[in-house]
Structures are given as structure tokens and as C-alpha cells.
Simulated scan of single mutants.
Amino acid sequence: MMKLDGVAAFFATVEAGSISAASRRLGLAKSVVSERLAELERTLGATLIQRSTRKLTLTNSGQTFLPRAQRLLREAEEASAELAASSGKLAGPLRLSAPVGFGILHLTPALTSFLRGHPEIEVSLELDDSFVDAATGGFDAVLRHGAIGDGRLIARRLATSRRLLVAAPEYLERAGRPASLAELEYHAGILYANRAGDWRFGGPSGWTVVRPRASLRVNNGLVMRDAAAAGLGIALLPTFFVHDAIANGSLVEIDCGVQAEGAELFLTYPRDHGATAKIRALAESLRTSFGDPPYWERPPRADLLEVVRAGAS
């Protein structure tokens, strides 16, 4: 009979790249992990991992078994979580991925609130500005800003965000303030490297695309914000990156008479993962923390604005 701890040892070894690393991840002795792997292979009647002094290599049988092992472990975790939820307690691991900038600015305090309410949940959070495939990346859920368009995924909407054209007062004094989309093309743009760099604006006749000259391309929104505040050019950024900077005057919103394409925040997870109790609870907690409308879309209170300006001076 196949034992789940052997499956866990196999999967951890493949993910970690070695039995030693897997033993550290599992908190077990290396000999225990090796024995569990060997017992699993005896039970299955097949060699899953080819061992050598330099590296481990999956055999054909191991490659065939790997996705099934992942599914078995995920279903065991889900079953445990559902049983815990039925008793009023959520527990166990929850692997998350999110963009770097949003994670630093907004996700940490929201996760703190979530974990205070569910102290038995163990969150592993990886911040990554590259595209993370929620269906195959090994995460329970991935937070995304923007359209999903993937039939393999379920997406739970968390919040909305506008995108605003912003620049430093110093830049606008030097280069002039654009009053139309046509004038934008003659300005220096700070562009997001992981997209084509196009700026899209909606109007009565449909979408208009603007392609400014790039003074900087970078794959991180916080760097874009800081580059704009330093006077390098104009950036098109979500309000969750710039609401504080606009409040304290280090960035100024530019109005060209049209609205930039907006976006929404989603918590996404594989369709075959199932709507686990932990993911549902996380989505509801994040919605509550961000608010409706989210706090980055609300005008700053006058008293707080005075405090921010006083600190900036």
C-alpha cells in the first residue's frame, strides 16, 4: 500500500533538487527521506529517481508519477483543510505568489490581519514581478493585477485600481505639461518592461494607444514610481503605487482629458484545485482589508494630508 509520506518525500526531493535539501525542507533526517523514497519505489515497482553522486534525474516513470504525486498531496491538504474548516478551524500550508511592489506596499499588512484570525495557517509568500503561472507554478493561489483570460483558472476579484499618468513637478516645469494624448508621444516615458509598453486610453470612439519615447524600462512598479518622482519622465501607474506620492506632492497627476485603461486585482488558483476553505477565507479577508472602494482610491483625509505635507517639508 502506497504511503503518503513517501509521496511527500518524492515530491520534496524533486522540488528541492536533492535528498539533502528535501530532508531540510521536511525537517527529517536524510536517511529517513532516502528510506521513504526507496519504500515508495518498491511499492510502485518502478524506479522514480536515478541517483548519482552529482545529481538526481527523474526516470520516465518518475516523470509520469510526478503530476499525480502533486495532485495526491494537494488533495490530502485540501481534505485536511476542509475537515478543519468544518470544525471551525483553518490550518495547514498556503503557498502564495504576488507582484513585488504590491506585496511590499499592501499585501503584508493585509496578510498580517488574515493570519491573526487564522493562526494555524502557514503562509509561504513569494514576491515575483515575472509572470507566474497559477496553474502549473506550484502555488495554491497567485495574486494578479490585470486581466486573467485563462480558462484553467478561477479568479476571485479582490479590488479595483485605476491607472494614472504621473510625473514630478520638476519634470513638468522642465518639459511642459501635456494636455492631450498627441502631446504625450513627445515626452519621456517610464515604461513597464513586462508589457509591450503601450499606454491605452478609452474614449467615445474606442481605445487609443500612445507610444512615448522610453527613458527607462523596468519590471517593477516601485522603481517606476521612484524614477518618476526623480524627474526622469512620465509614468502610467496604478493608484495603489502612487496615491501617497500624489498626496505628499512628490508626484502630480496629469489630465489629458481621457481615462487610462484600468485594472482589477484578482486572487487566482487552478480550476482543478477546488475552492478550498483557506483560499475563500483569504479572499474575503483581503477584500475587507483593501476596502470597497479600496483605500488607495479614496481621497486622503484633510488632517492626514496636512501631516504628510508637514513631514515632507
Results as ranks from 00 to 15, higher is better:
63 Q>M: 15
63 Q>D: 12
65 F>M: 06
65 F>I: 00
66 L>C: 08
67 P>E: 01
69 A>H: 05
69 A>C: 09
70 Q>N: 12
71 R>P: 03
71 R>N: 09
71 R>M: 10
72 L>C: 11
73 L>H: 03
73 L>S: 05
73 L>A: 06
73 L>C: 02
75 E>H: 08
75 E>Q: 09
75 E>L: 08
77 E>F: 07
77 E>I: 11
77 E>N: 12
78 E>I: 14
78 E>M: 13
79 A>E: 14
80 S>C: 11
80 S>Y: 12
82 E>D: 13
82 E>N: 12
83 L>G: 11
84 A>L: 09
84 A>K: 08
84 A>Y: 08
84 A>Q: 09
86 S>F: 12
87 S>N: 15
87 S>E: 15
88 G>N: 05
89 K>H: 14
90 L>M: 07
90 L>D: 06
93 P>N: 07
93 P>V: 00
94 L>K: 01
95 R>T: 10
96 L>K: 02
98 A>L: 04
101 G>M: 02
102 F>A: 04
103 G>M: 01
103 G>Q: 00
103 G>P: 01
105 L>G: 06
106 H>T: 06
106 H>I: 03
107 L>E: 01
107 L>S: 03
109 P>S: 03
110 A>K: 02
110 A>L: 04
110 A>H: 04
110 A>G: 01
111 L>C: 04
111 L>T: 04
112 T>Q: 15
118 H>E: 10
118 H>P: 06
119 P>W: 04
119 P>F: 07
120 E>S: 12
120 E>I: 08
121 I>C: 02
122 E>R: 13
125 L>C: 04
125 L>K: 01
125 L>D: 01
126 E>W: 10
127 L>P: 05
128 D>P: 04
130 S>P: 09
130 S>V: 12
131 F>K: 11
131 F>E: 11
132 V>G: 06
132 V>E: 07
132 V>C: 06
133 D>F: 05
